[in-house]
Nucleic acid binder design. Sequence first.
DNA 1: TGCATCAGTTACGTCAACTGCACCAATGGC
DNA 2: GCCATTGGTGCAGTTGACGTAACTGATGCA
Lengths: 119, 119
Amino acid sequence: MSQNSASHNSAPLPDCGVARFLLLLDGPWATLIVRELLHGPHRFTELMDALPGISAHTLTNRLRKFVRHGLVTRTAYPEIPPRVVYELTPLGHQLRAVLTAMDDWALTVPTSAFTPTGG
Amino acid sequence: MSQNSASHNSAPLPDCGVARFLLLLDGPWATLIVRELLHGPHRFTELMDALPGISAHTLTNRLRKFVRHGLVTRTAYPEIPPRVVYELTPLGHQLRAVLTAMDDWALTVPTSAFTPTGG
DNA sequence: TGCATCAGTTACGTCAACTGCACCAATGGC
DNA sequence: GCCATTGGTGCAGTTGACGTAACTGATGCA
């Protein structure tokens, strides 16, 4: 796990696109956040509401990572109370194809595939 | 994280296909194993060799989960030394579309997107 | 007898992601 | 003054994915 799918601290970059994808969309929440953002720009609390169970801490971290890597833009309005809007960049929007593929797979697959016994 | 992308112990099944997908392809290695299996049937050690860094422990666990959920078949030949072949089921092969989408995204995207500073 | 192979299993430990709770700043309403 | 709101931050603690090392069983080889 030092050159396949871990963080980008020492590894230059895996050749494989799948591995690269996993570099950015790694945790369980990451992909779900992108899914929400695909519906349009969201404020912080809107994302919190849309993702029941996520903590502010986790959401902040994922969002920061996305911003750092150019998947998402963060726009802060100097109002009171503050308003911050997160929006996918064109790069982030290109992830729609991936999410759609995941969706198609999971939805065409029999429900039994998700049960531990397999049927 | 009790009904979005966690295990299938109590949650019936998320409505969202993306969340369902994440139920099965969760860890960093899971997707990479599927990627290798997409190239054809593999023996245990072949998978070990193809995935530098993975431990037998992790590989066993991921493979078991896939078998349990019907993504992969496990064929053990009663030879000495033993030979076990893992192969994707049609269900598993349908994941090719998802992996291809990941690959396309990562490869059309500028390399700078993977650097922490965002380019 | 002892070492090597394959495909694991088991015990034990690490490490990062994630969680919950409290707290902050600045302002509006009561 | 006190509470609510928004968008977080810090600390402590949990979870579980993952890693290392040792071991198994049956056989071939020296």
